[in-house]
Design a binder for these strands. Structure first.
Lengths: 158, 158
DNA sequence: TATTGTTATACTCTATAACTATA
DNA sequence: TATAGTTATAGAGTATAACAATA
């Protein structure tokens, strides 16, 4: 009996307290989910990040909103948003229109092409969601979302 | 009756399906936790990211490991690790020693100063963990960690 | 004066490709 | 040949500061 000689494969590192830390486990789960999202879209021949998807949904559901409002909703600086919108606009998914009521702001909107793309993206996101939730029951998924919201509300915002 | 006139404050954007998507909720929770981590360390006058903390723990618990082994454990490319180690080494927290058995590899180790710093950092992380878990019972935290591990194992790794 | 969007700049994280030293 | 570490390079995400147009 006894195991076969066993080649010196990766000898499993000691991670100490890390696996008991919520922040650590959360970060690793998030990283795996991000990779799954990327794999789902890459396999489908589409290129999109979770952040871009969220942005497109926000613009679709709030047509005409300004860059400031969008940046606030995304929790990023308005200067950070500029190159992101540049890229999406270059791909023909959205447009910056002049606001008729306030010359300082842009009214953001999806193009017809962007609307169509978002429908497709949403389907891919649903497939992705099914996979990352595949080991969880519906009740567990609901519980998980609730607990994550509690975590978010308990964290201190700089 | 009825509410007072209400100034046109931020009119709460419509987020559509986003709040029902596990990936979206997970990403936002992670973002809030990251901000809390940063705030905790900044308030204490210390500078460290969650990734750097994890790295230091790994080196502390596996003294002498190589950069390749560490990169694998962190899930990043070996070239990505180089500037990260440069910075930590410049801060006097760790050293790259020549391996006596394999001239190609570096044996990583914390300095005495790094050991001391890690003790302090660990205390700050515990305070941070208390805060992000403040809205959860002990049982809920355990449940949450378990569910997150299930999510991670269900996600497809590129 | 204050706000919006932009630009310039800088830093970090990430990767790929090519190079050097060693095995 | 193959592996470990480094460098060069590039792209994305993040920020601050300063500027022009507009309110």
């Amino acid at each position: 009996m006894g195991r076969p000689p066993a080649k010196p494969t990766s000898p499993k590192l000691d991670r100490g307290v890390l696996p008991t830390l919520l922040g650590y486990v959360l970060r690793r789960a998030q990283s795996a989910v991000f990779a799954d999202f990327a794999a789902t879209f890459q396999t489908a021949g589409a290129a999109l990040t979770p952040g871009e998807f969220g942005l497109l949904v926000l613009v679709a559901r709030n047509t005409g909103l300004s860059q400031m409002a969008l940046a606030r909703a995304l929790g990023i600086d308005r200067s950070t948003l500029v190159p992101i919108l540049d890229r999406l606009q270059a791909r023909g998914l959205l447009v910056r229109r002049r606001s008729p009521t306030d010359g300082r702001t842009h009214a953001l909107a999806l193009t017809p092409s962007g609307d169509k793309a978002l429908v497709r993206f949403t389907g891919l996101v649903r497939a992705h969601e099914r996979r990352i939730g595949s080991r969880l029951s519906t009740a567990e998924t609901r519980t998980l979302i609730g607990l994550l919201e509690k975590v978010r509300s308990g964290a201190r915002s700089l």
